[in-house]
């Protein structure tokens, strides 16, 4: 189990027993990987030794998790509860709750605040020092995805809405946008250089958008088709579930239900590479902070309903080269 099929890729031991909902590399180190799952657990992996360091439970499926720093984590899910976990003391705290399931959990180091987005159509801010809720902000619809862009918060909701909030001034919404893609928003992630974001949709398409509302900058936005497979004259269109940015090169990886991972150079509109096909849908992706490693969750997401013999939920750690991630 320890060695993958490829020399630069390995499978993690002790993966979750049910669908993988999120995985995040720790800040400032590529040693730790946090993984949340439908099996009610949040697991901390030591990637360098391929060892599961720790595990804690929610009372229901966990939909998202994030690091505050290398020893503190936050997580939320179907139990509507936000939990904080201290890996040093092995202790958990129930921070607070939403009226419905928590779909997204993010930490913003610039403002030192934890943000949760829920299907109850609100976003809540939490002070990690107390920890307690510092505000509830209603959104136009159920929150499906969230991303941090410096001190800006990007919220993608049902109904293809995208909202840009300023975490330093939550009094009003900075920008109300509509997704430029026709179908449901699956994932939003921001460029590390904070100029814009990438949005993926349920039907094989990805959009590159810029935050600056000036017409000149807005002209640069575009969208492209991907994660489609042509067979016998039929084009199969897959959901694009995951996006992860390379923090140094501003390139990004996308993962689809076709089991493929593509790495793109968004500014030059080029695909840098396509990795081999993974056994199941790509549910989540994360680059390590130095961009040397890419964590890939291959996990069926029930996009085609109940199916017999789904491949096991697996986490791959891939050592990526500059050739795969650096703009040419």
């Amino acid at each position: 189990m320890t060695a993958g099929e490829l020399p630069n890729e390995s499978k993690l031991n002790n993966p979750p027993d049910d669908g993988i909902s999120a995985l995040k590399f720790g800040p400032g180190s590529s040693q730790f990987l946090l993984v949340s799952s439908w099996d009610c657990t949040v697991r901390l992996f030591d990637v360098s030794t391929n060892f599961m360091r720790m595990k804690y439970n929610h009372s229901a499926a966990v939909l998202d998790c994030c690091f505050q720093d290398n020893v503190h984590a936050y997580s939320g899910g179907l139990d509507k509860t936000l939990k904080a976990y201290d890996f040093n003391t092995n202790s958990e705290t129930q921070v607070g709750s939403h009226d419905s399931a928590i779909r997204c959990v993010e930490y913003c180091p610039e403002v030192n605040v934890v943000v949760t987005g829920s299907w109850d159509s609100t976003v809540k801010l939490w002070d990690p020092r107390a920890p307690c809720s510092v505000g509830t902000y209603s959104q136009p619809d159920k929150v499906y995805t969230m991303a941090m862009c410096g001190d800006k918060l990007l919220v993608g909701t049902a109904g293809r809405k995208v909202l840009v909030w300023d975490l330093r001034n939550m009094g009003f919404v900075q920008q109300r946008r509509e997704s430029s893609l026709k179908y449901q928003t699956r994932c939003i992630r921001a460029f590390p250089n904070k100029q814009g974001y990438v949005l993926s949709a349920i039907e094989g398409r990805v959009a590159v958008e810029y935050l600056d509302p000036s017409a000149e900058v807005q002209k640069k936005k575009y969208a492209f088709k991907c994660h489609r497979i042509k067979e016998d004259g039929v084009e199969k269109i897959y959901p694009v579930n995951a996006i992860a940015f390379h923090s140094q090169y501003n390139t990004f990886a996308t993962g689809g239900s076709d089991g493929y991972v593509n790495i793109w150079d968004g500014f030059n509109k080029k695909r840098l590479c396509q990795l081999h096909r993974y056994p199941s849908s790509i549910a989540a992706l994360s680059f390590s902070h130095d961009g040397q490693m890419l964590a890939i969750a291959s996990s069926y997401m029930y996009e085609q309903d109940e199916m017999a013999n789904t491949p096991p939920d697996t986490i791959y750690i891939r050592r990526v080269s500059d050739q795969e991630t650096k703009p040419k």
Partner: peptide, 22 residues
């Protein structure tokens, strides 16, 4: 010519929108 590879009718069944996770 194009086939969406997910159960589309469940996503936009009824009047409300649902995601896979929901």
């Amino acid at each position: 010519r194009e086939v969406p590879m997910y159960c589309k009718y469940k996503i936009d069944s009824g009047a409300e929108e649902f995601s896979f996770e929901e």
